[in-house]
């Protein structure tokens, strides 16, 4: 899933300067699951915005709404009646959600309440870790199901580097060395032979070359 994290309240309050009617919009998919922007977080943020205004003696109207997915036109459409009369929409969706709402409702400022962080998993409740960079050219078949692009600090394809110490990355003792993990996993699978083939330099053209990427499937198009 996409993992996000709420921006600091200072930052949010600064971007809302001058807005007295704000609709806080949550998303019921990834950011609900990663506990950053679901209905509950919408309630918490809305409440804090009202308290902040009360504190300063300002009058504000803070609305709350949560839709299934902010990245789908049909769900975003459902905001249409609610959005009228607001100076700004504060989206608690990922970057895709913010942009979808902004594109759909041209006349209103749409602001991000979250920082979209990465594609990852909850390693345990309350701790999310990055697993995939969306590089567009998956190599997990050769690395024992452990991604060196996302999980090696340097994104090395032929690791490890000299900074691998006791299974940990030199960047932080809390970070596993991805290449150590890869080695251990391949060893347990009896496939250390995979390491004998060097990776050729990565073809980054499948990542950001040519601007924003698209996936086109004619057979499912209407």
């Amino acid at each position: 899933m996409i993992v996000a994290e709420r921006k600091s309240l200072d930052e949010i309050l600064a971007m809302l300067q001058g807005c007295s009617r704000v609709l806080v919009v949550g998303c019921g998919t990834c950011v609900t699951v990663c506990m950053a922007g679901g209905e509950k977080e919408v309630g918490v943020l809305a409440s804090l915005l009202r308290l902040a205004a009360q504190r300063e003696g300002r009058t504000v109207e803070i609305g709350e709404a949560t839709i299934e997915r902010q990245c789908e036109w049909e769900f975003v459409d459902k905001l249409a009646p609610a959005i009228r009369g607001y100076d700004a929409v504060l989206s608690m969706g990922c970057g895709a959600g913010v942009q979808t709402i902004a594109q759909r409702f041209g006349g209103v400022r749409v602001l991000p309440a979250l920082n979209t962080k990465f594609i990852g998993i909850p390693e345990k409740q309350g701790l999310w870790v990055e697993m995939c960079l969306g590089c567009g050219d998956c190599v997990l078949d050769r690395t024992g199901g452990i991604c060196p692009i996302a999980r090696c600090s340097k994104g090395l394809l032929n690791g490890p580097c000299g900074g691998s110490q006791g299974g940990k990355c030199e960047v932080s003792k809390d970070t596993d060395c991805a290449w150590q993990l890869i080695y251990d996993r391949l060893a347990s699978l009896g496939r250390l032979d995979l390491l004998e083939t060097e990776f050729a330099p990565k073809d980054w053209s499948k990542n950001r070359d040519g601007g924003p990427r698209k996936v086109l499937r004619e057979e499912v198009m209407l």
Partner: peptide, 8 residues
Amino acid sequence: SLLKAVGI
């Protein structure tokens, strides 16, 4: 801590 962040 959230209250503190909004000046309360």
